[in-house]
């Protein structure tokens, strides 16, 4: 899986809502998950399959229904990477600031 799939999978309001709903519980059935979401079961299937392909959720058949659970580790991976790189740029820009500011003082 690429980060592209991960981020693309999350870049949709319905899928984001599904993830948000799942974040409050360990796992639930598709029926429970979809109540009040305003989309058809078939439409939801497509979204869930996409999330499953990106390893964001796991789908497990349970009789006539399907249990959906969230893979938090997958989400955390993508975010941790971005967060870390943001922090690095903060530090570097601060170092640049100190370098050019100090240098200017030395020039005086």
């Amino acid at each position: 899986m690429t980060a592209d799939e991960l981020f693309r999978a999350l870049g949709d309001p319905t899928r984001l809502e599904i993830v948000r709903r799942l974040s409050n519980r360990e796992s639930c059935t598709i029926s429970m998950l979809l109540s009040g979401l305003g989309i058809s079961r078939q439409g939801a299937r497509k979204h869930l399959q996409l999330l499953a392909d990106a390893n964001i959720v796991t789908l497990k058949p349970d009789g006539r229904d399907t249990i959906v659970s969230l893979n938090r580790a997958t989400l955390a991976k993508g975010k941790a990477f971005i967060t870390e790189i943001e922090l690095q740029w903060d530090k570097r820009l601060e170092a640049l600031r100190q370098y050019v500011d100090n240098d200017q003082i030395n020039d005086l």
Binding site: A3, R8, T74, F81, I82
Partner: peptide, 8 residues
């Protein structure tokens, strides 16, 4: 970042 492998 979108095109980077997650493994990275």
């Amino acid at each position: 970042f979108a095109l980077l492998p997650v493994e990275m």
